[in-house]
Design a binder for these strands. Structure first.
Length: 224
DNA sequence: GGCCAGGACACCA
DNA sequence: TGGTGTCATGGC
């Protein structure tokens, strides 16, 4: 097992090295929490640059509110989502979330935030189109709940550094961080953003990890 | 022209 | 539970 592959202290060292060498990422890039939620759905398996186009489309059409999105026809919504791909599926997903948000919380982020985190996570996962990563992104970045977000980048980075086995489940990956880190929204926010940064630039299928900021600062490493 | 991007779901064994 | 196909545009 890899449970002892990296101590809490070593993982914090990784975090501080990344923060020092890359700098804060200022996540999530959005003007208000509802925009974060819609962005989290739109960015599923999609480059953020393409999501920004859709966000701008929605803003220009005054559609970036739960009330407006609940009224716009799904086909019209799909055409606006087109730049970020999977537009038919994502239009349906946005509609499903908005219905839930209005029915349960009257479109209020504040009301939603008051609910217990675990219960909220189960609720989110029951909505069509919201899986573990999207649910956790909403909880952490939009609702400021202390949940660590993991993704394919995170998995790749941990595996390539020998800190976790290949193809872990989402829960294994998430537990890896939450068992080692103090429960801290700001830390979870920044750490995930930093991992995304190095994943995006340095840890693709064809590794270019010689450029990785962690290259000479691996607590326990193996050849990358 | 192929690969990949801040996943999730349906279907199958 | 684990593997595979599908959804789809856009940048490099």
């Amino acid at each position: 097992m890899h449970k002892d592959s990296l101590t809490s202290k070593e993982l914090m060292t990784v975090y501080h090295q990344l923060l020092k060498r890359i700098g804060p990422r200022h996540w999530w890039p959005a003007d208000f929490p509802f925009e974060i939620i819609i962005g989290a759905i739109l960015t599923q398996n999609t480059a953020w640059a393409n999501v920004k186009k859709t966000i701008n489309n929605l803003k220009q059409n005054n559609l970036l509110s739960p009330q407006a999105l609940s009224k716009v026809p799904e086909k019209e919504l799909a055409s606006l989502i087109r730049p970020s791909g999977y537009f038919n599926q994502k239009a349906k997903k946005v509609k499903q979330f908005v219905n839930y948000f209005l029915n349960h919380y009257q479109g209020s982020i504040k009301k939603m935030s008051q609910k217990n985190t675990n219960a909220l996570r189960k609720e989110l996962l029951s909505i069509y189109g919201i899986g573990p990563e999207t649910a956790d992104s909403i909880l952490l970045y939009a609702l400021k709940k202390p949940i660590f977000v993991v993704d394919t980048y995170t998995s790749r980075i941990l595996y390539r550094h020998g800190w976790l086995h290949e193809n872990p489940s989402y829960k294994e990956l998430q537990d890896f961080f939450m068992e080692r880190l103090p429960t801290d929204v700001a830390l979870f926010n920044e750490f995930h953003a930093l991992l995304d940064y190095i994943g995006h630039f340095y840890c693709r299928k064809t590794p270019r990890c010689d450029l990785c900021p962690l290259k000479n600062r691996l607590p326990k490493n193996r050849a990358l």
